[in-house]
Each structure stands twice: as C-alpha cells, then as structure tokens.
C-alpha cells in the first residue's frame, strides 16, 4: 500500500518536472493576481483587508492548482491506474501530492503578498504556520471536488460551484484563526479550539475521500 502510494506520488512529481509549464503557469497566476491587487490599492491595505484578500486569493489559487490533478488524466490512463492500483492508494497519493503543491503555492503567495502589499503580520512564524494549515485544508476539499468534476464534463466552473460552499466554514475559521498573528487578543483556549476544529474537519475530509472515491472512479 505505502509502496503503491509512493510510486503514484513519484509519478505525479515526475510529471510535474517534465511538464514545467503547468507549474510555472500557476506561479505566474499568483504573481499576476497579487500584482493586480497591488495596483488596485493606492495605499497599503490594512490588516483586516490584507487578511481577507490573502485567503480569497488562496482559494482561487487552489481551484486552479488542484483542478488539473484529475483533469489531466486521460480516460485510458485512468483505466490503466484502475488495473494496477487500489482506489485508496490512488486518492491518497493525489491528496499528498496536492497538499505538497498547495503548501508550496501558499508560501509563494505569502512571500509575494509581503513583498507587494507590505507586512501587517506581527507574528510571522505563527502566520506562516496558519497559512500551511490553511493550504492543507483547502487542497484536501478541492482534491475530492476535482475528482467529482472530472467526471462531469464541464469542469473548472463546477469545481468552484461545488467547493466554495463546502470550504466556506473552514475558510471563515482560518480567517479568524489568522487574526492571532495580527496580535488580536483571543479568550483563553479559543485558538486551540479553532485549530482543533480545522484539524478535525481535515481528518473528516480525508476519511470521506477515501470512503467515497471508489464509487467515483469505476465507470
């Protein structure tokens, strides 16, 4: 099982290295989005606006970055995977790959945000941690959404329609949680509670993905 997951993961990473244009495409997407925001704000945005913008941009980047993970697999190739791997191994490898990709993209976004839109964050390390956690949660949900949308023919728009309402509670929790790094005072235990809730939702999504994916991929 672990070996299969690892092999599939290796295949995805290798593909990414062979087809660098998709990777750079997303990086360019991040850069141009942040640049548009930079130009549309004559003054530097304040902490709250910065925070909201950051998470909304994260959401759209995730839709673009994760969307292709299932769409790039052609029908024939899916049939091939079907014959050599179990659905659990396949979805877990996709999840791990997307999580890694999204963590990387989140960090790039963070660097660009700080570079272009100044840095209102008072506790940088904490915020980076929250960004990584947020990137993981968002990519988990959108991995499964991408798997569903790949089955319906019209895809990218459908991912957004299906994924946004589902990710909304988590996104609100993350926005609130990241206020910690803006030196906002929380009542005792609230930060821990929020983190546990986000983590719990992540576990829930992974379990649901592993349980439901077998029904998605047999045709």
């Amino acid at each position: 099982m672990t070996k299969r997951v690892f092999a599939l993961l290796q295949k995805d990473v290798l593909l990414e290295f062979r087809q660098k244009h998709t990777f750079y495409g997303i990086v360019l997407y991040i850069a141009s989005t942040v640049f548009v925001i930079y130009l549309s704000f004559p003054d530097k945005p304040d902490g709250n606006t910065w925070n909201s913008l950051f998470w909304i941009i994260q959401l759209f980047i995730c839709v673009n970055a994760v969307a292709k993970s299932f769409l790039q697999e052609s029908r024939g190739r899916m049939l091939y995977f079907y014959s050599i791997a179990s659905p659990a191994a396949f979805i877990i490898s996709k999840i791990i790959y997307n999580v890694l990709l999204m963590i990387l993209m989140s960090l790039i976004t963070l660097v660009l945000f700080v570079f272009f839109l100044s840095n209102p964050v008072s506790n940088a390390l904490q915020f980076t941690g929250i960004v990584v956690v947020g990137g993981i949660s968002i990519s988990l949900v959108f991995t499964l959404m991408s798997a569903i949308a790949a089955k319906a023919q019209q895809n990218a728009a459908l991912i957004a329609i299906m994924g946004f309402p589902i990710i909304l509670p988590q996104l609100l929790l993350l926005m609130r949680l990241s206020k910690v790094a803006f030196a906002e005072v929380f009542r005792a235990g609230a930060v821990m509670q929020l983190t546990l809730l986000v983590g719990g939702l992540d576990v829930l999504v992974v379990v649901m993905a592993v349980v439901l994916f077998p029904y998605l991929w047999k045709d």
Binding site: I148, A152, M162, I166, L204, M208, L212, Y215
Partner: peptide, 12 residues
C-alpha cells in the same frame, strides 16, 4: 456522482 457529492456535502 451526485450521490457521492450529496454524502460528502451533507457530512461537511
């Protein structure tokens, strides 16, 4: 596919 989405969305 819509059954899969219904189950996932309801749980979320």
């Amino acid at each position: 596919i819509s059954a899969v989405y219904n189950i996932f969305a309801f749980v979320m």
